[in-house]
Amino acid sequence: MSVVSAETPVWAHRTPRKRLLLWAGWLACVALFVWCWERMTQRTIWAFVWDAPTAAADIGSRAFPPRWSYMERLWAPLWDTINIATLGTLLGIMMAVPLAFLAASNTTPSRLILRPVALFVIVATRSINSLIWALLLVSILGPGILAGILAIALRSIGFIGKLLYEAIEETDISQVEAITATGASQGQILTYGIVPQVLPSFYGISVFRWDINIRESAILGLVGAGGIGAQLNSSLNMLAWPQVTLIILVILGTVVVSEWISAKVRHAII
């Protein structure tokens, strides 16, 4: 039996030490924020900032109505944009799948050499945005949709590779064990024990990435990698705001449609 203390115990949400730490943490965060803000706005010209509402109103008045007749010059770039996203995703998948099996700790053939290499490739391709890849590839291959496709593919490797290797690592070990107990070879364990388990996530990941790639390929043209972004760039340079409005509406429409398709497909798989 517990001993009942003489005084009524005081209930506190947190111990004094914890409270102190919490306050110190918040203070540090606020201080860091203020310092960052100061550093960041060092070179900001505030006159522009205060002038922004007028500028916005000005652009807004010139951007409407959109120039609908420009649409006939957008169909071909739009088709290119969709091709960049689709072919880029397919190419990315082809490279990401073997990489994922090399990177997953339960399927990798060599823990010391191949796995770290595969993980590095996945992180490196994932950290660098497709626009940067496009910038790089345009400077190497010249402008065109090939650079766009490769840029999308490279960025997709990291994304698909990471999610897929995580899915492989999460497979149910008892199913693998049961297949092993039948005397299956290692290739058979892979195709019967692991592949069926990761297939649904594989489809989901691929369609999801395709959806993202549609968005990304729409702007790759800004740096010369083909697609509708090139039209956006030239319209912006000419300050042709009604055309800009139309292009943005087209991009938004495409994004909405691709998101709808991807949601439908993912729903059908699960």
């Binding site: 900032v49 922004a52 916005a56 652009i59 729409a218 800004l222 956006l232 943005i248």
Partner: peptide
């Protein structure tokens, strides 16, 4: 969510001038 970061950035640069503030 529908507007690409890059497109938003282009507009903010046009409105607020070049530099980190537009990026922020």
């Amino acid at each position: 969510r529908a507007l690409q970061e890059i497109i938003v950035a282009i507009f903010f640069v046009a409105l607020f001038g070049f530099g980190a503030f537009a990026g922020f």
